[in-house]
């Protein structure tokens, strides 16, 4: 999926050159430079947060829970059950943070984007550059977390290696959608509402316990939300239980990313170029 052709479909071929100059790299590079001079604790904490959760919930609480039975009938340790979910959650949180708060600040306070728009960069360069930076960070964290899982013996199948591309896809989906939503936000208060969506997804998307506790209509609702697909996708890969559903989850994220990029592009165009 190449961005220029996608935007051509949305905005008409004439608009693409104004939007995209094929230089998202410059924006990504700036992100990396800025990360180098930003505080290391913040960068490092993205790795530690899921590890803390894994130790406290998976190991600590696991002593009261014992094994969890997967739909296939196989029973696995509680830590092995929630570890992939925590990986999915951290991919979501990282991508959402980078594409919402981070972008919001630069848009409204740092005036960074205005400065970038005054150069030969187009809005889509900026969007893709920022998303690319978010993805890069996400993959670094995921690699770290997977290593921890490996050491703790929580990767139950060789397919766990495939979680890296899966995390990329998930992060791309959340980042592009997050950026699209942020482009409509104008106050801090509105930004807080994003949190209100993330928290229930975090608690209920089969992260800490299977969906079977809920009545069916609620199960459907949760299955419509993105985090559940991410959790199931990654859990399938780390446990090696791949089903037809796995392809469905991938398709869900491809669609989500496409919608996100299309909307973001339209919005950036109207925000910066009209």
């Amino acid at each position: 999926m190449s961005a220029p052709t996608l935007t051509a479909a949305v905005t008409g071929a004439g608009g693409v050159r104004a939007l995209y100059r094929g230089n998202a790299r410059a924006v990504l590079g700036r992100g990396l430079l800025a990360a180098r001079s930003s505080t290391w604790v913040v960068v490092v904490s993205g790795f530690f947060e899921p590890v803390f959760f894994l130790l406290a919930m998976g190991v600590g609480l696991g002593t009261y829970i014992g094994d969890v039975t997967l739909p296939s009938g196989r029973a696995i340790a509680y830590a092995a059950y929630i570890a992939p979910a925590l990986l999915a959650v951290s991919a979501m949180n990282g991508a959402v943070y980078d594409s919402t708060w981070n972008v919001f600040f630069k848009m409204h306070f740092g005036k960074l984007y205005q400065a970038m728009m005054a150069t030969s960069l187009g809005p889509l360069d900026v969007a893709l550059g920022e998303i690319g930076y978010a993805l890069l960070r996400g993959v670094v964290y995921a690699t770290g977390f997977l290593t921890v899982m490996q050491v703790m013996g929580l990767n139950l199948s060789w397919t766990a290696v495939l979680t890296l591309p899966a995390v990329l896809l998930i992060a791309f989906g959340f980042a592009s959608l997050g950026m699209a939503i942020t482009s409509y936000m104008s106050t801090f208060q509105q930004m807080d509402w994003i949190q209100f969506v993330l928290l229930p997804m975090f608690l209920f998307s089969a992260t800490f316990f299977p969906l079977t506790v809920y009545p069916e209509p609620i199960q459907w609702l949760i299955q419509a939300l993105p985090l559940w697909h991410a959790v199931e996708l990654i859990r399938g890969l780390t446990t090696g239980e791949l089903t037809g559903g796995t392809a469905g989850h991938v398709a869900y994220y491809l669609a989500m990313a496409a919608v996100g990029v299309v909307v973001t592009t339209r919005r950036l165009r109207s925000l910066f170029l009209d």
């Binding site: 609480l61 928290l199 506790v213």
Partner: peptide
């Protein structure tokens, strides 16, 4: 209001039903 509701539902009730001890 929302946060306590979610936590009580999610941890207090949802998770609780999977506790063995």
């Amino acid at each position: 209001l929302g946060q306590p509701l979610l936590y009580l539902l999610g941890l207090g009730l949802g998770l609780a039903s999977f506790l063995d001890a």
